[in-house]
Structure formats: structure tokens, C-alpha cells
Design a binder for these strands. Structure first.
Lengths: 362, 362
DNA sequence: CGCCAATCTGAAAACGATTTCAGAGGGCGG
DNA sequence: CCGCCCTCTGAAATCGTTTTCAGATTGGCG
């Protein structure tokens, strides 16, 4: 009997050391009962429940998450790995996810991969080591080891921003390919026949790749050729959007429609078009993807596809919370996207060619 | 005897249940030694160290963070509460912080307050309950309870994006007031005498308030009046930036310089200026604050002040990691900001008044 | 050559909460 | 009126790791 916990250790000083046992003593019940009141209030008699809760508030008791996690094998913590928070749709999704989790008493551990699959694996490993109860990834371009590692830990997980994923991984997102295809078809209907594409296609960005493939497919279907020189890969910045457009137009003056896999690129392209003296959409149509805030405010406002990042984040949160609680509903959720037509697109210029450019395609 | 862990349970299947004891057995040492190898390798003999590490990798053992946290009273987890991730400088700061922490083996719990002090308190409470080893906040407008709560938990914390904070709270950030003042002085030097301000001033946004006060002070110093009607408070969106500029100019046509407390507002203002037929900077100068990516790419590029969000995040991470390790160096770090002059500002228009506006100030 | 000190290792006691397993008490049916 | 079952509570074991405390081994020094 080494310990004598008789002397109340200066009650007011509140060592922030209040533990379950203290509450139990104060309420005159056993620790077990306190725990029950906290976790399954319905199974304890109203009278005790009341007494215990009173003690809890009186002592300002808060559970110690470490002890709790140890015994219950759950940390009430979820993890997410996004490519970067610097891209607003990811920031938005993460924020939505966090907000939803917060309602459920969960918190979100966050990590970013900088679009590198290897790094993603590391971060996943780190999150798993920290004992997350669930994990959200982005896209469908993980290393095989990543999936293996997660599965081996028996942690529920899913991927986001895509509608389908290989290998039976659950996914919540939009149909990037289909969306891009519909955008291409929209431009085809406007009479465009000469397309340029600015895409950011690092290895690990399968979303952009899907969008690109969607465009490709739609054009092929309409027998519209898409020469290699009409496709430019650029990393995702305004700067590169500018550069992409310039390259595209200077070497292929016949292009009347430039499709970007990202709004950021598209807005860069818009800016550059203006610098080049090209009128949008009279001379050239430009489209984006994501519908970031700026898209609607730019001049001209950008035709783009809205990605419901909020819904994605929220749905991911809900799903993972359920899964962590043992309710494992397999879901492959395709959220709706919207084609938003704004001022940056218009009918293909007919005979009227662009003025400023030195040589015309004709 | 419910458990018989004699039979190696299909070694390959690796139940992810490998625990310290298993490693110890495999290496033929005591659990204590394994723990030591993992945590203080230097105090264990090279031979055993080697043997243990071999066992660790052989079994692919990873520490259970729950048990570890319980005993060591540290979670290797830090928390951050930002107003929102939707604002790029916060997203950038959080990302930088996360990257740095990742190097130290920490992970970051993230929460957002939506600019509500009450909400901030809740999120802080939640993070503390989850046992974070340290906490980063933003700004200096927390509820008193928030500080009290954190201190009572004995958790190191600091605030960011401001250079000083009340009540001896540590801070890492820039001198918002000074920066804004220098911007105002710059405009004064250009001859501007009629200022308008678009600020987002919710209660809990002390950064914007500081910036506003800085401007106010600089103008007062130069005996330039700033009527109430020249100050408009707007929430931080492009849309509101537009609206702000319109209101400002329509009711005060004499204004030649509009200072915004945020780039987002400023770019909205720029866009609206164009819509109104005002040439920037010939007719009107517009300034921002933050130097977001778009600032340099917009047409005209925005004169603004760069906030070193990356450095802030990194420094916060470093400081908290140290503090969590027991090294509590009091720091109040003022990081340098830069006034970046671009095309959106120019000399105050002399006699030449703006054309499009129905009535002139004269 | 022997003893003390210095290393290094192992046994065992926490850390704080959850939960199984029974037991106590009360209500209802026979 | 008695017994059985059901509900609710408490005792105690347990989650996996860290760390004190001592013991054992070895080396150094007198």
C-alpha cells in the first residue's frame, strides 16, 4: 500500500489532474459507473447519472484521451493526406471535413504529400503510427505499399475527389473524366474544332490525367484530332497557365479553344490571352475546372466545372466516422459536378481570325 | 488461460498486433531494453542495440502511440486553430507548419474557428482533450477563457500572424500596424491625400484592425483626414471587395487611393475599378495586404505587403517542438514583411480627374 | 589480486480509462 | 408468498509502453 490518496490535494488548485477515480469518489460511486455515464449514459439509472454528471462538472473533469485510447483502441482521430493545402479545393475539402468531424467529437490530423506518392506513403505511415481511426486520401495514384500498409493496420479509409478507384478502394468524388468530356462536348457544340489543352500532369495527379483523358475521348468521338503539340503539361500556377497559353497559341495559331485542367491554369491563360491582345471569348475560348472563387469574378468570368469540395469533405467525414464506429458501408459515391458556363467561352470564331497574331492559320 | 500466443500466428499475416513484448522475446531481451533502444539508443550497448533493431525490423514493429502517450504523457501531436483554411496565407502557414513538424515526427491536429472566438475556444478545448503537446493560435483576439484553459492544461502555446500579443502570450508574426502604416506613407509620398479603406473587421480579426489602425495613424501623422465615410468594413471576399470599392467611390469621388486590408478585397476592388471604367493607377491607386499568388499576376499587378506565412508556420513548429520537449524559450518574434510595389499604385492624379464618373470632385 | 564504481539490463510498477463478470436488489409471475 | 429473472452497480483485469529501482556484470585502480 504505497499510496495514500486520502488528503484532498488542495481542491481549488485543480491540478488538471482530475481523473476518473476522483469523480467517482466525489459522486460516491465506482469508476466503472462514471465511465458508463460518460460513454453510455442510457444504461445507468437516472439518479446516479445525475449525481455523476454533477460531480463531473463540479470537478471540471475531462477524459484523458491517452488512457481512453489505450483501453478502447480508438483515438477519436482521423487523418487526411492531401497533395497540398495551397490549392483551394483541397483546403476547402479539408476544412469541411474538419468541421463535420468536430461535430462528432473527432479531430483531424492533417498531412500533405506535395504530389509525391512516396511522401504520401510516409505521411500515411506517420498518421497510422499516431493511431488514427480512419484515413482519407486524395485521388487514385497511391503506391501499392500505401494501400497495403493501411489495410494491414485494419483502418478504414477511402479516397476522395475521384469517383472510382482501383482495387476496391472506396471513393467519394466526382467523375473527372465525364465532366471534362462534357465540357469538351459543350465546346464542340459551339463549333470549336481546334483544341489546345493545358494540363498539370505529374505522375501522381490522376485527377488531371482523367480530365485530360475525358477531353481526349470526347474529341475522338467527334473525330476532332488532338495533335500532341496541342497538349501542354504545366505545373499548377497562374504563371504556368500564362506560359502554357503563350506556347500553345504561338505554335498553333489555329486553336480556338483552350481547355485547362484547373482554374488556376485557366486564369493564368486568360490573363495571358489579354496580354497577347486576344479577346476572350471572341477570338478564343478558355475553360477551367474546379470553380474556385476567382473564377466567377475574373474578367471575363471563367467557364468551368464546379467540384463540390465541401460535400466531398463532409461525406468523407461522415463515412469515416461511421466506419470507425464499426458501420462499414461500402460506398462508391459519385457526387454531381456542374458545368458552369460563363463569359470565357463562346462560339468558335468563323471567318474572323484573330487580329494581333502575325500569321493567320488560313 | 484464454490466450495462447505460442503458435506464431501466421507470421506473414502480421496482425499488426506486434507489441513491444514480442520484439523483446524475439530479440531475447526484456521489454525495457527494447523501449530503451527505441527511445534512448545511446544508453544501451551496441550489441543489444543491434539485436533489438534487427528484431524490430524483422517484425515490422511500430510503437503503439496510445500506450506510449499514456505512460509518457506526450502525444507527439500539436494543434493549430486558424480562422479558416480558405484564406491562402493560413493554408500556407499551416502547410509549412505541418511539413516542419513532420520532420520532427510530430503530427498536426487542425481546427478552424471561422473567425469566431467562441468557436475558437471550443476547438481549443477539443484539441486539449485530445492531448496535444502544444498549440498554435492566430491573432490576439481570443476569449480570456481560451488562454486560461490552455494555461491550466500546462500546454505550451503561442499565437501567430501578429508580432505582439497581450498578456505575455508568445507571438510569431509581422508588425501589421507598422506595415500598413508604411504602405500609407508610401501613398502619401506619391501625393495621395484622399484615402478610402476597405477593411474586414469582424470582432475577432485583430490583424485587420491593426492594419486599419496603422493606416489611420500614418494619415493622422501627415494631417490627412480620414472621414468615417471613407472606411468600409467588408467580409473578405472578392465580391465584397468590388462592392466596397463601388460604395467608396460613388459616395466619395475625390478618393484617389484605396487601401484594402487584404489582397482578396483589393483584387475585388481592382476588378470593380475596371468595371467602373477607372484606370488603375492613373485614376486611382489600390493596395492590398498579404501578397497572395494572384497579386502579382493580376492586371494590373497589385501593390501589397508580403506576409511570410511559410516562415511563420515553420517558426511556430520549431518553437512548439522545443517547448514540448521542455525547452521553453520565451520568444516574441517579429518577422520581416516587405512592401512590394507593383502596378496598382501610382502618383495621385493631378488636375486630371476621372472621366466616367458623372460628377467630379472639383 | 581484490574491491569499488560504473555500466548496462531486467523486473515490476505505474499511466488512466474501459469493460467483463458477477453479485445485489427489486419486480413480477406462479 | 416464494422464486426467478432482469436491471443496475462495483471489483478487478487489462490495454502497451515507459521508467524507476536494483541487481549483475565488467572494468579500473589501489
Amino acid at each position: 500500500m504505497t499510496k495514500n490518496k486520502n488528503a484532498t490535494p488542495t481542491p481549488t488548485l485543480s491540478d488538471s489532474k482530475v481523473k476518473l477515480g476522483d469523480v467517482a469518489r466525489k459522486a460516491g460511486v465506482s469508476p466503472a459507473t462514471v465511465s458508463r455515464v460518460l460513454n453510455h449514459p442510457e444504461i445507468v439509472s437516472p439518479e446516479l447519472r445525475e449525481r455523476v454528471s454533477r460531480a463531473v462538472t463540479a470537478l471540471a473533469y475531462t477524459r484523458d484521451s491517452a488512457g481512453r485510447a489505450l483501453k478502447s483502441r480508438r483515438t477519436r482521430t482521423l487523418g487526411v493526406v492531401v497533395p497540398t493545402l495551397g490549392i483551394s479545393i483541397f483546403a476547402e475539402g479539408v476544412e469541411a471535413m474538419q468541421n463535420r468531424l468536430s461535430e462528432h467529437g473527432y479531430t483531424l490530423l492533417i498531412a500533405n504529400s506535395q504530389y509525391e506518392a512516396r511522401r504520401e506513403l510516409q505521411e500515411v505511415a506517420s498518421l497510422l503510427e499516431h493511431g488514427v481511426d480512419g484515413l482519407a486520401l486524395v485521388g487514385d495514384a497511391q503506391l501499392p505499399e500505401t494501400h497495403q500498409l493501411i489495410r494491414q493496420h485494419g483502418v478504414p479509409y477511402l479516397t476522395t475527389y475521384v469517383a472510382t478507384a482501383r482495387d476496391e478502394v472506396q471513393a467519394i468524388g466526382i467523375d473527372n473524366e465525364g465532366a471534362a468530356a462534357s465540357m469538351a462536348r459543350y465546346l464542340l457544340e459551339l463549333g470549336h474544332r481546334h483544341f489546345g489543352i493545358i494540363a498539370n500532369l505529374p505522375e501522381s495527379n490522376d485527377r488531371s490525367m482523367s480530365r485530360y483523358l475525358g477531353i481526349r475521348a470526347a474529341l475522338a468521338e467527334a473525330d476532332v484530332p488532338l495533335p500532341h503539340s496541342h497538349v501542354i503539361s504545366m505545373s499548377q500556377t497562374l504563371q504556368h497557365g500564362r506560359q502554357g497559353l503563350r506556347q500553345l497559341i504561338q505554335s498553333n495559331p489555329e486553336i480556338t479553344a483552350v481547355m485547362c485542367t484547373t482554374d488556376t491554369l485557366a486564369i493564368g491563360a486568360l490573363a495571358e490571352a489579354r496580354s497577347l491582345g486576344l479577346k476572350v471569348p471572341q477570338h478564343i475560348s478558355i475553360t477551367g475546372f474546379d470553380d474556385i472563387e476567382l473564377a466567377s469574378q475574373f474578367d471575363p468570368p471563367l467557364t468551368t466545372i464546379s467540384v463540390p469540395a465541401n460535400e466531398i469533405g463532409r461525406a468523407a467525414a461522415d463515412h469515416l466516422v461511421n466506419a470507425a464506429a464499426g458501420v462499414r458501408i461500402p460506398v462508391i459515391t459519385t457526387l454531381p459536378h456542374r458545368l458552369i458556363v460563363r463569359g470565357s467561352t463562346g462560339p468558335a470564331p468563323g471567318l474572323v481570325r484573330r487580329p494581333k497574331l502575325h500569321r493567320t492559320a488560313e
